[in-house]
């Protein structure tokens, strides 16, 4: 049995402890906002927060998160995620949408640490999140917009 907290709720999973967190979240907990894109930490679609830090769930066996707090896109709260989602909606960032949960998790993590990120900060923080539709122009813009909202 592997115990950890997901979106504030304790879970206790009786599955192979090597199971990637990604598949545990999806297959066992039906939290489908976290997406599978590559399985090798190259695309970022599976990004979740692990004890408050972004983490690629596809390369995270559940044995590694025993006792930890996992937050998925469904469980995110706070001013940064709200600002990011509003900014995403205001300029229609998503196209196909598959990568966007991961993009939003990384963008939120960036804004939690850097209030007013430069273009270079954005390039560095978002380098691990692939968007095949190449919505990058709008991702960049929306992060800047969210930062302005948070400044008030």
């Amino acid at each position: 049995m592997t115990k950890f907290i997901v979106n504030g709720r304790e879970v206790d999973l009786d599955i192979d402890p090597d199971t990637p967190l990604l598949w545990a979240l999806r297959d066992e907990l039906r939290l489908t906002g976290t997406k599978f894109g590559c399985g090798i930490a190259q695309c970022g679609a599976c990004t979740v927060m692990l004890d408050g830090m972004p983490r690629r769930s596809c390369v995270t066996p559940i044995s590694m998160v025993e006792g930890s707090e996992v937050t998925t896109i469904e469980g995110m709260e706070g001013p940064e995620i709200a600002a990011v989602q509003s900014a995403w909606e205001a300029i229609d960032v998503p196209q196909c949408g598959w990568c966007q949960s991961g993009q939003i998790m990384s963008a939120t993590a960036l804004l939690q640490q850097v209030a007013s990120p430069s273009d270079e900060d954005i390039n560095n923080a978002m380098a691990g999140n692939v968007c095949r539709c190449a919505t990058y122009v709008r991702i960049r813009q929306a992060i800047h917009d969210a930062a302005k909202t948070l400044e008030g």
């Binding site: 906002g33 976290t34 896109i73 998503p94 949408g97 966007q100």
Partner: peptide, 27 residues
Amino acid sequence: RPKLDTVAKSNGTAIFTMDVYRDGMLT
């Protein structure tokens, strides 16, 4: 004007094929 699918694609609730789960389903 705003796209109709933007909100659900920004909060993880949009349902794609891989997100379909049915009772007793095998992968």
